[in-house]
Design a protein around this nucleic acid. Structure first.
Length: 144
RNA sequence: CGACAUGGACAGGCGGCCGCUGGCCAGACUCUUCGGGGUCAGGACAGAGGAAAGUCCGAGCACGGCAGGGCGCGGCGGUGGGAGAAGAUCCCACACGUCCUCUCGAUCGGGGGCGCGGGUUAGGAGAAGAAAACGACCGCCGAUGGCCCGAUUCGUCGGGCACAGGUAAGGGUGAGAAGGUGCGGUAAGAGCGCACCAGGCGACCGGUGACGGUCGUGCUGUCAGACCCCCGCCGCGUGCAAGGUCAAACAGCUUCCGCUCGUGAAAGCGAGACGGCCGGCCCGGCCGGAAGGGAGCGGGUGGACCGCUGGACCGUGAUCGCAAGGUCGCGGCAAGAGAAAUGGUCGCCACCGGGUGGUGUUGAGCCACUCGGUACAGAACUCGGCUUAUCGUCCAUGUCCGAUC
């Protein structure tokens, strides 16, 4: 039993440490996108606008919206890959349980590190906003 | 050697770390209606293009439509062969037009490039212009007729006017002005006549044919067919978000059961209860099955699976063909995503450009350091073409020619 437990904990910790980007990390479907657009918090950061809202999952999900105005298919795809990579590398360093939609505005190409910094900044800002809201509502509830 | 043209090949390389998609091989945990499903970690393998693009043609495939014919709409357009699944497209030869190539220049020949290229004597629209064809704005003429003046042998003659009229030489407009140039001709002109040139028509000759040649014929405006139109030929529509399968949940529809007792294996039948209708009420008669459940049909929404990658396939050798390509042998299986994988980052090297320093008689070049760059561009059902974009490197072929004056 003891060994079983050990094995379980190691796999868990391994799973937590690994920087994967699977299908479950993707935001999919027009409903999920419009929901985030309508209810989420918008944080513009340079060439990108990050919209975030909490989900009921232990991890975060990412959706990308890059219009044709940004460039041709190759350019758009390159930006998407860099943003996805940024999300992948950041996923365990920042609080989980959010859905994000990133809208990309037309801009000159920049290295991935810049996208990563912008995303981290927006991520923290969104988390702070929801933490504040949660605290306010839990403070207000007992009094009312 | 160099320049230009055409065709072909390649589309920076290697490594570390961290990831993604696919089927395959194996494992742990877990759920299960025992069919299977879920989560996690692992292994080796495979994983964008010559244009994957534009979606412009031609097909396969799918669904819908379809007697036959006509109108309409759309597409194509030199000729003869050939390749091809194809009426897409391509190849060879020829014809026509045009350009280039030698030369101070001209002509002829050779060679090469380019051409969405049937009909403009079937007709129409089109700006400017007087007019695009039954042409007269200016101009020219005014022979002939008219009017006026003079002379007169009374027959006419000379001069004038620009009234009738004649006229396409010249001006102006235009891409184009009555085929062009020259000579004759005329009052002035005009294919009115002639010569040459260009075109049309006819005859003959050559050619399978596009067409070419000769002769005849005064027959002759021209830009536009990437405007309508005419002629010939061809053409159903929509595209994998096509379309098919599956199981859920929820509308809707059909049908059965329905509450009790008897009978019966069951279906059912009989009786009763209940509800509705006839009725003031009862009897009686007729009709029905709420709630709930079973079965069937089933629009739309979301999901899963199929379609979905083995094909007019790729590589290679032989052979046939001028070529496009054909035939045969051998070897191979090569992405299948779905908010959409095929990457991110770091280092080294290669190539190109700039700067600094060194070497070098100046220069060319070489070396070191440093900075920047390394195209166009991303599969979305699959093929065959076309078109467009493209940093550069390499290879192959062709041309850069001749005669006469």
């Amino acid at each position: 039993m003891c060994t079983m437990d050990d094995a379980a904990t190691t796999t868990m910790s391994n799973a937590e440490r690994r920087l994967t980007f699977r299908a479950r990390h993707r935001l999919s479907g027009i409903r999920a996108f419009t929901r985030v657009h309508r209810e989420g918090v918008r944080k513009p950061r340079g060439p990108i606008i990050v919209i975030g809202m909490p989900n009921d999952l232990p991890h975060c999900r990412l959706g990308l919206s890059v219009s044709r105005r940004v460039g041709n298919a190759v350019t758009r795809h390159a930006i998407k890959r860099k943003l996805r990579e940024s999300f992948r590398l950041l996923q365990h360093d920042l609080p989980g349980g959010y859905d994000f939609v990133i809208i990309v505005r037309p801009h000159a190409t920049i290295p991935m590190q810049r996208y990563k910094d912008q995303l981290a900044s927006a991520w923290e800002a969104i988390d702070a906003t929801y933490k504040k809201r949660y605290r306010r509502s839990s403070d207000a509830e007992p009094s009312a």
